[in-house]
């Protein structure tokens, strides 16, 4: 008995005149053109991230990150519920900056999620977060405020390089590769853009280096 799969493939092949096992010859292409040229990765990344309503800070070294985060949070309504952080950032001196962080994945009630990134993209001002042990995807999704720590060395030019980076680091794609470009938003009522739909209302980026 033929299956739906067989019948669909048979129709596809009869329409196209292809045969099973035929491997298409794709032309080798130069990299796709960039939509907007990247002159300086850090400056362009920063400017484009800001145009997506992310806020951006820049510190010299990793050790300065907790204080920068504390400075940013001081300008927001006080954090009464959880502040979670990716384990790889837990060793920073958060307590010294007066912040009580927990290294775990986020729950819905948590207010701040602090994450690292796999890399960032200058062409669009985008962050790339890969899922995996210690890389909780919920930390950048459930809390109202997402803070991403981005070493300037990981800012790449384009999305193609970002994919290559993930593959180089992980061998194959993890469950989720999330490209994040600013706080969540909707325009579903009267085409009016409202920031803060189901995901974070704020994305704050701390550049390092």
């Amino acid at each position: 008995m033929s299956t739906a799969r067989d019948r669909i493939l048979a129709r596809v092949r009869s329409g196209l005149g292809t045969r099973a096992g035929e491997v298409p010859d794709r032309p080798v292409r130069s990299p796709a053109p960039l939509a907007r040229p990247v002159h300086d990765r850090v400056t362009d990344f920063r400017q484009r991230a800001e145009s997506l309503q992310s806020t951006v800070d820049h510190v010299d070294e990793m050790d300065a990150v907790p204080l920068a985060v504390a400075r940013y949070l001081a300008g927001l309504p006080p954090v009464t519920n959880g502040m979670v952080v990716w384990p790889e950032l837990a060793a920073l001196d958060w307590a010294g900056a007066g912040l009580a962080v927990e290294a775990r994945s986020a729950l819905s009630a948590d207010q701040v999620g602090i994450t690292g990134v796999c890399c960032a993209i200058a062409e669009t001002g985008t962050l790339l977060l890969d899922s995996g042990p210690g890389h909780s995807a919920t930390a950048s999704l459930l809390p109202e405020t997402h803070i991403a720590v981005v070493p300037v060395a990981v800012i790449l030019e384009r999305m193609e390089e970002a994919f290559a980076q993930v593959l180089a680091r992980r061998g194959e794609l993890p469950r989720a590769v999330n490209f994040i470009s600013g706080p969540s938003r909707t325009a579903d009522i009267e085409q009016t853009i409202v920031i803060g739909a189901h995901g974070p209302r704020r994305v704050h980026i701390v550049l390092v280096g």
Binding site: A35, R36, R48, L52, T124, G125, T126, S131, G132, P133, E172, L173, P174, R175, A176, V177, N178, F179, I180, S181, G182, P183, S184, R185, G199
Partner: peptide
């Protein structure tokens, strides 16, 4: 210029 979230999803939950 880019949609807020582009998610590329592969397989199931990562080990660990």
């Amino acid at each position: 210029d880019i949609t807020n979230y582009v998610s590329v999803l592969t397989g199931t939950r990562d080990a660990g």
